[in-house]
């Protein structure tokens, strides 16, 4: 009896150490369990409508995070310009589909196309691809710090276009009355149906990304990330690979932007400021570099944080945004110190 008690007390005393070791060795699994459980309990406590909203926002951010991970995690190019393509996708759909009764701006009527969403969507995605190609021809010559700077420049230019090309974007006023997607005369007004559509697009983005990263192409991307000069000696033109993944990633970000526009039915330049790109980079790094699962996890954790902080008791509403950023920043610093590849990552910066 005494021996058994001793064994139990010894096991209990070793429990914290064993848990810590397990946490360190299986952080990806533990983090997944914690985030998914937190999301499930949060959604259960807030009700169906809130859950649908949360999941829709998650799906849009997840598309963005997965697409950026192709460039940042798999190819090693730290781009802070992704928000530009997010905005181009959103504005293209907004400009082509919006049908306001009477939109006047400085005495001029802006062009009204009133296209259906599913006609505007491929145009938005293709336009992102074309812009990414043109920009990428120049960008693919760069790497490391210079790449960050030129992508920063792109984000600034894109934002200024959204603000100043008023004949397309309506500038700071934004574009209102963006319709919901309609197919064969059926309009997807129901939030649940919209969530299904968004998740379907997310599944396509994840599927394409998975095909890319598990192909020979994906392996070359990782080699470019590791040593761009060395991979060239083996017969690869690294700039072509960088350009190709940049274009693919931009098109995915454009798709996310298109979904945002039709979901919120309103776009303005404030949704596409540089801070959004920084947040996106943080999500990708937190979730895990070079891991599609990590990006999904990062996006879910971010959306939980975004929404969850709003319900913290005694926290004044005006401080919610600051608290979010403090938590995100602290997490980022801790991960850089103790786990530079992120929670589920396969690549250390």
């Amino acid at each position: 009896m005494q021996i058994r008690q001793q064994a139990i007390s010894r096991a209990l005393s070793q429990l914290p150490q064993a848990l810590l070791l397990s946490l360190r060795n299986h952080l990806e699994i533990w983090a997944t369990v914690v985030v998914v459980l937190a999301a499930a309990s949060f959604m259960l406590s807030r009700g169906t409508g809130f859950s649908i909203t949360l999941m829709t926002v998650f799906a849009i951010w997840a598309m963005l995070a997965v697409s950026l991970n192709l460039v940042l995690g798999y190819t090693g190019l730290l781009s802070v310009g992704h928000v530009g393509f997010y905005g181009i996708g959103a504005y293209t759909v907004a400009a082509l589909t919006a049908n306001p009764r009477q939109e006047l701006l400085e005495g001029e009527i802006i062009q009204i196309f009133a296209w259906p969403f599913f006609a505007a969507l491929p145009v938005a995605v293709a336009l992102c691809g074309v812009v990414a190609f043109v920009v990428g021809v120049a960008f693919s010559r760069f790497r490391d710090d210079v790449y960050v700077l030129v992508s920063f420049g792109f984000a600034i230019i894109a934002y200024n276009v959204f603000v100043n090309w008023q004949w397309v974007t309506r500038g700071p006023f934004g574009i209102h009355q963006i319709p919901k997607p309609a197919i064969f005369g059926y309009t997807i007004n129901d939030d649940l149906e919209f969530l299904v559509l968004t998740l379907a697009f997310l599944a396509i983005v994840v599927g394409i990304s998975w095909l890319i990263v598990t192909s020979s192409f994906g392996r070359v991307l990782k080699a470019v990330r590791e040593d761009e000069d060395a991979i060239e000696v083996f017969g690869y033109r690294s700039s072509r690979y960088k350009l190709a993944i940049w274009v693919i990633s931009a098109m995915m970000a454009g798709l996310a932007g298109a979904m945002l526009a039709t979901y919120t039915s309103f776009v303005d330049p404030n949704s596409f400021i540089l801070l959004e790109s920084i947040l996106l980079v943080a999500i990708v790094i937190l979730g895990g570099l070079a891991s599609i699962w990590g990006s999904l996890l990062g996006a879910l954790a971010f959306v939980l944080l975004e929404e969850g902080v709003r319900f913290v008791p005694f926290l004044p509403p005006e401080h919610v945004g600051q608290v979010r950023q403090i938590i995100l920043g602290t997490l980022l610093v801790l991960l850089m110190l103790f786990r530079p590849q992120g929670v589920a990552g396969r690549f250390k910066l």
Partner: peptide, 13 residues
Amino acid sequence: YVVMTERSSLLSL
């Protein structure tokens, strides 16, 4: 593998 496989960015996909 990376030096054994397809060099064309399109075909390697």
